[in-house]
Design a protein around this nucleic acid. Structure first.
Length: 436
DNA sequence: TCTGGGGTCCTAGGACCC
DNA sequence: TCTGGGGTCCTAGGACCC
């Protein structure tokens, strides 16, 4: 048995904890660069704002409907997430943190009324952290996801489902006929694993509700679609195919990519940007104790603009796998210099670290004609550890490679964040102050 | 003027092997 | 007319997730 605990409109809810005046108002949180809406309060959803709606297309609602837009404050959301996760963990013996706002809980061995227990945990998260969430309970992860969707929808849209399914929905506790009715009332596109493409194909084949999909045979689904959808159907039928992953393995690739605040044409600012992206990716790489064997760098113009398009990437192999910022940055810059072409309005660039291996598994080597490499590699590792410690304590890029640009220089590629709230919970200088 | 960022898994097809 | 059989590895692209 699984539970899925999922924060409601998570980023918006985090902002509301520290600005209660946002309660009851239409609020959106914007993506990096204040580009598009990535989180919406219920009131914003009521206004018809879609997930991913470009800000310039909905900006008029600021004046017309009192919409409030905030720049994404991921430092805040990450910290609030940690607090919510630690309380959600109290629901059962195992936990998989699936994303910043949701975690699966393994419920095997938990005694007593699961629904009641979930209601208590939900209330605790609400009271202690200030975040509303929904909890779905079912025999498989796919069904738990669905239960969570029902819990939230029943709360947000009264009448859509039986009211006792609101906030906490335990599908395992429903009589068969009630379960069928609920599944029949749910669009097939809500199923975890059914995206826009597959959803369209299913509907074209006459499969509209979750119940319709559940009633297909696994072999039919495999023959007409894929093993992936077959697994989804089996999960809907109550057969667990996806286990709880409570010890996430190291990432297979690490990326750092950004759109620019404004278009960039010259090579120098691109070198700065790519250097910084490589440095950040290198930091993540060291965090998971891996080494990268290849560096991919790309630049691209904006596909939304009617200007000459240029979109290229290049993979730079490394002499030996490394997690050293200087080496990774040098490789990224070298790649950039290969693909850079003057005369284009670049909108975005990025660095990806590929072919990652654990840092205790790299191949020993005999080095000739490279004085001191063997001796120095340990020294370089210690240097990186020291840099990471300084930066974690005093702020990102307190120590950085020179090619990311001088401290006070104007970074024309810096992203736009005009509406960001303070780091209320992670910076002493920005802690919220209560007044009598 | 203005459109995010970071991942995973699966499949088909090509290259290559004996 | 007709052109083996069986396998691995790699990559690009598609689909999905939040």
């Amino acid at each position: 048995m699984y539970a899925l605990v999922d924060g409601n409109n998570f980023y918006v809810s985090c902002e509301r904890v520290f600005r209660p005046s946002l309660q009851g108002r239409a609020v959106v949180v914007l993506s990096n660069n204040d580009g598009c809406a990535i989180a919406r309060s219920n009131e914003a959803k009521e206004l018809g704002i879609k997930m991913g709606a470009p800000w310039f297309q909905i900006k008029h609602l600021e004046d017309e409907a009192g919409l409030v837009a905030l720049s994404a404050n991921f430092t805040l959301y990450g910290d609030m997430s940690d607090r919510m996760m630690s309380l959600a963990a109290g629901l059962g013996p195992t936990q998989e943190v699936y994303s910043i706002d949701e975690s699966f809980i393994g419920l095997d061995g938990v005694r007593g009324d699961l629904t009641e227990r979930a209601r208590k945990i939900r209330a605790r998260i609400n009271q202690w952290v200030g975040l509303p969430c929904g909890i779905g309970i079912a025999p498989t992860k796919t069904l738990a996801k669905l239960a969570n969707h029902i819990a939230k929808t029943a709360e947000r849209k009264p009448g859509s489902y039986p009211p006792d399914l609101a906030q906490v929905c335990n599908l395992a506790a429903l009589p068969t006929s009630d379960l069928d009715a609920v599944l029949a009332a749910t669009d097939v596109g809500e199923v975890w694993g059914v995206g826009p493409r597959i959803g369209k194909q299913l509907k074209a084949a006459g499969i509209h509700s979750v119940l319709d999909l559940r009633q297909l045979s696994a072999s039919t689904v495999r023959a007409n679609w894929s093993v992936v959808l077959e697994r989804t159907v089996r999960e809907l039928q109550g057969q667990p195919c996806i286990g709880l992953d409570d010890a996430p393995s190291a990432k297979q690739q690490i990326a750092c990519t950004r759109s620019f605040g404004q278009a960039v044409t010259d090579e120098l600012p691109l070198i700065e940007a790519v250097s910084e992206f490589a440095s950040r990716a290198a930091f993540k790489l060291r965090k998971q104790s891996s080494l990268a064997s290849e560096v991919l760098v790309f630049v691209r113009t904006s596909p939304f603009r009617d200007t000459p398009q240029y979109n290229r990437s290049i993979v730079v192999p490394l002499v030996r796998p490394t997690a050293n910022t200087s080496e990774l940055t040098a490789a990224a810059v070298q790649g950039l210099q290969h693909i850079y072409k003057p005369g284009f309005q670049f909108a975005k660039a990025g660095v990806m670290l590929l072919d990652l291996i654990p840092n205790n598994q790299h191949q020993a080597e005999l080095v000739f004609n490279e004085p001191g490499v063997g001796v120095c590699s340990e020294g370089r590792e210690r240097l990186m550890s020291a840099v990471d410690m300084i930066n974690e304590r005093f702020g990102r890029s307190t120590v950085h490679v020179a090619s990311t640009g001088a401290e006070r220089s104007v970074k024309e590629w810096a992203m736009k964040q005009e509406r960001r709230t303070p780091a209320y919970t992670t910076s002493w200088s920005q802690v919220a102050v209560a007044r009598a």
